[in-house]
Simulated scan of single mutants.
Amino acid sequence: MSLQRFLQDWAIPALIGLAMAAALLLLFPHLRGQTEKVPTVGSFQGPVSYASAVNLAGPAVVNIFTRKVVSQRRHPLYNHPLYRRLLDNMNLPQQERMQSNLGSGVIVNAHGYILTNYHVVSGAEEIAVVLADGREAQAKLVGSDADFDLAVLRVELDSLTAIEVGDPDKAQVGDVVLAIGNPFGVGQTVTQGIISATGRDLASTGNGSYLQNFLQTDAAVNPGNSGGALVDAYGKLLGINTSILNQSGSTGGISFAIPANIALKIMQDIIEFGRVVPGWLGIEAQTLSPQLARSFNLASTNGVIITATYNQGPASLAGLKPGDVITHINGDPINDGKHGVAAMATLRPGEVVTITYIRDREVRTTQATVSEKPQPQARD
Rank of each mutant, 00 (worst) to 15 (best):
V231A: 01
D232C: 11
D232L: 04
Y234G: 12
K236Y: 09
L237D: 04
G239D: 03
I240R: 06
N241T: 02
N241W: 04
T242G: 05
T242K: 01
S243G: 08
I244H: 00
N246P: 09
N246E: 11
N246M: 10
Q247W: 08
S248L: 07
S248K: 02
S248M: 12
S248G: 13
S250K: 07
T251F: 12
T251N: 14
G252A: 15
G252F: 13
G253D: 06
I254P: 03
S255F: 00
F256T: 07
F256V: 00
F256P: 08
I258C: 01
P259Q: 03
P259D: 02
A260D: 05
I262A: 07
I262R: 08
A263G: 06
K265Q: 14
K265N: 13
K265Y: 02
D269T: 05
F273D: 12
F273T: 01
G274Q: 00
G274V: 01
R275K: 08
R275S: 02
V277E: 01
V277I: 10
P278S: 01
P278K: 14
G279W: 00
G279M: 04
W280D: 03
I283N: 00
E284Y: 11
E284V: 10
Q286S: 12
T287P: 12
L288I: 06
S289I: 10
P290M: 11
Q291W: 09
L292I: 15
A293M: 05
R294L: 00
R294T: 12
S295C: 03
F296D: 06
S300F: 08
T301Y: 10
T301H: 06
T301P: 06
N302C: 02
N302E: 08
N302T: 14
N302D: 10
G303Q: 11
V304F: 10
V304E: 08
V304A: 13
I305S: 13
I305V: 15
T309R: 07
Y310N: 14
Q312S: 13
Q312R: 15
G313V: 01
G313W: 01
P314L: 05
A315P: 08
G319I: 10
G319A: 13
L320N: 10
L320P: 08
K321I: 14
D324E: 09
D324G: 09
I326S: 08
T327M: 02
T327A: 05
I329Q: 00
I329T: 06
N330V: 09
G331W: 09
I334D: 04
N335H: 12
D336I: 03
G337K: 01
G337H: 03
K338L: 11
K338R: 11
H339P: 03
V341M: 11
A342D: 02
A342W: 11
A342V: 12
A343T: 14
T346E: 07
T346L: 13
L347D: 07
V352W: 07
T356R: 15
T356M: 05
Y357R: 07
I358N: 02
R359L: 03
R359E: 06
D360H: 15
R361Y: 04
R361I: 05
R361Q: 10
E362G: 04
E362M: 15
R364D: 01
T366F: 00
Q367I: 05
Q367H: 09
A368I: 13
T369P: 06
